[in-house]
Simulated scan of single mutants.
Amino acid sequence: MNYFENVIGGSGDEGVIAVDVSRDVLVDPVTNMSETPIPPDLLTLSADGSAESDEESTKLTLAYENLYEIPRTIAERFSEHIKYLDISHNKITNLDPLVHFRHLTSLIADHNPITENCILPPLPQLQLLWLNHCKIASLYPWVSKLKQSCPRLQHLCLMENPAAPSYLNGGTFYEYLQYRLFVISQFPSLNHLDDRKVTEDQRSEAHRLYKRPFVERLVKPGPGGFSQLMHTSVTWNALNNKLANFLGKERQGNRNLLI
């Protein structure tokens, strides 16, 4: 039987509305999902906030529900009030239903088979995004599209993705450094990347290496040129190797950054 359980005041997840979605709810969100019943007490609770504080009524978790999609019923009924959404530890590959969550400021989507082909819809208020342990294998152009969707992003975690090399997945320090600088260069407002704070030295170096006028000078027409990489999904190693050929020995003189 489908049910929604209000766990406000419970231990551990105080203030979070936990949703338990059984298998028969996991249907095509475009067809039958809108007909899924929701208890009237939860609708009343979330609509006017009379039984809880404003902060508590803006948190929703769908974690560990074996979901393949964000249920459209939930998106349409609760999106106007939700600012914090946890959809971690599911099987979600499509984030299009998030378009309903116009006021979302925090999204936790760890441990989902999300790839670089999954583009977030416009989330102009989003400040925190966790996509740890997903399947993102290419940074470009995915990062640029993420910037367009989430221009106010301040906290981003991509750890344990193939496109985020680190000691955790066999990446070298150099690969990790270049990955970090490239991502920082795309988000001027980013304060925290993965498990470390963004420093002013990193921001300056990222701007020097990857600012748009610099990249545009590297673009050459014709097949095999850097312009081809700019318009296709490529792995970080491919992009990094191409840049290394252009930069030559310049990078060898760069100072090491504490990260």
Score class of each variant (00 low, 15 high):
R212G: 11
R212M: 14
P213V: 07
P213T: 12
P213A: 03
P213W: 10
F214I: 10
F214C: 04
F214N: 08
F214E: 04
V215W: 15
E216Q: 09
E216Y: 03
E216R: 06
E216P: 05
E216W: 06
R217L: 03
L218G: 00
L218A: 01
L218N: 00
V219Y: 01
K220S: 10
K220H: 09
K220Q: 11
P221R: 00
P221E: 06
P221N: 01
G222N: 05
G222A: 07
G224E: 12
G225E: 10
G225C: 05
G225D: 09
G225W: 12
F226P: 02
S227T: 05
Q228F: 11
M230F: 13
M230H: 06
H231D: 11
H231V: 15
H231G: 06
T232I: 06
T232P: 06
T232Q: 11
T232G: 08
T232K: 07
S233D: 10
S233N: 09
V234I: 02
V234C: 09
V234L: 04
V234Y: 05
T235V: 05
W236E: 12
W236S: 05
N237R: 06
N237S: 14
N237D: 15
A238C: 07
A238W: 00
L239I: 10
L239S: 00
L239D: 02
L239N: 03
K242Q: 08
K242V: 12
K242I: 10
K242M: 13
K242T: 15
L243M: 08
L243H: 11
A244K: 04
N245G: 12
N245D: 15
N245F: 05
F246N: 15
F246R: 13
F246K: 14
F246Q: 15
F246T: 15
L247N: 08
L247E: 14
L247M: 14
L247V: 14
L247C: 09
L247Y: 02
